[in-house]
Each structure stands twice: as structure tokens, then as C-alpha cells.
């Protein structure tokens, strides 16, 4: 508007387009998205805690050992929900709430595997399965290594 008044040219041009169009672009509702992510992510964790307690009380796992079957169960459920076409809808609603827990990791792998099934099991499913999840593994391993070294050095 000010530009028009002082006659410095048009509001829309290729140089300042990115700024000019900002008011036209829908703003994400950050607060609402945070609340949704918090609630859904929290519920997934509460469910996981329930599973842990179940494995401890019913199958006599120790607190530490119960983590493994809990993770496996969550992965199984998330993979099934991905296959039934439910997890992507949950993801659209919850955002990071369903992406950050281990269920999001399972969804990334299962969805890629499903997507590339038509290209065969070796070059399709096998080589594309970690297309999305691969970088989580790479940078997870690298950061674990760095933190491990730091811990070693600092506790010597």
C-alpha cells in the first residue's frame, strides 16, 4: 500500500512477490496444532504405558525388559492402521503428535513398503522401505555415537 502511495512501482512483481502474497496465504493455527499434537501424542504414550504395565503384571517382565514387547506391539498396531488407511488421517489431524512416537516411525516404513509393492519385493519393497525412515536411522545413529563419546569423555 505504502509503495503505491509513493509510486515506487507495482505491488506484485517477481522481486517482492514472496512478501506481497503473505496476507493471501492461510496461516496455520499454531496453538490448536500444538494442543492436538500434545493430546494425541500423549494418548499414544499413555496407551504404551498401559501396554508396559500389562507385560509387567501379566507376563512378569521386568520394568526394563517390558520396553521391547511394548515397542513391538505399538509398531504392529501402527502398521495395521497404516494398511487400513487410518494412520494418514490421524497424521493429518495430529501432526507431530502421531509422527514423533515410534508409531510414526512404523507408519513411515509401512507406508513406503506398501507404496512400492507394485515394483516387486526386492527392488520395490526392499529398497524403498527406508526411503522416509532412513534418515531417522542415519542421524539417530550418528547423534547416539556423538553423545556416547561425549559421555565417555565427560565421565572419565
Amino acid at each position: 500500500m505504502i509503495l503505491e502511495v509513493i509510486g515506487m512501482g507495482k505491488k506484485f512483481d517477481s522481486e517482492n512477490y514472496k512478501q506481497t502474497v503473505k496476507p493471501y496465504q492461510p496461516k496455520p493455527n499454531l496453538l490448536l496444532n500444538c494442543v492436538k499434537a500434545f493430546v494425541v501424542g500423549g494418548l499414544i504414550c499413555v496407551f504404551g504405558q498401559g501396554l508396559t504395565d500389562f507385560y509387567i503384571n501379566v507376563f512378569d517382565y521386568s520394568q526394563k525388559d517390558a520396553a521391547n514387547p511394548t515397542a513391538a506391539t505399538l509398531i504392529l498396531i501402527a502398521s495395521l492402521l497404516t494398511g487400513f488407511g487410518i494412520y494418514d488421517k490421524l497424521g493429518q489431524f495430529a501432526g507431530a503428535g502421531s509422527a514423533v512416537p515410534i508409531t510414526g516411525f512404523a507408519n513411515a516404513i509401512t507406508s513406503a513398503a506398501l507404496e512400492h509393492k507394485s515394483e516387486g519385493y526386492v527392488l520395490g519393497v526392499g529398497s524403498n522401505m527406508f526411503k522416509l525412515a532412513g534418515s531417522v536411522i542415519v542421524y539417530g545413529t550418528v547423534s547416539a555415537y556423538i553423545v556416547g563419546i561425549l559421555r565417555y569423555l565427560l565421565t572419565q
Binding site: 496455520p28 494418514d88 495430529a94 507408519n107 507404496e115 512400492h116
Partner: peptide, 13 residues
């Protein structure tokens, strides 16, 4: 974009 069943959140635009 991503696999059809991937649960990434898309913006309103």
C-alpha cells in the same frame, strides 16, 4: 510427495 498412506501433515495451502 510421499507414499499415499504416510501420515505427514499437509498445510492448508
Amino acid at each position: 510427495r510421499y507414499p499415499t498412506e504416510y501420515g505427514g501433515q499437509k498445510p492448508a495451502s
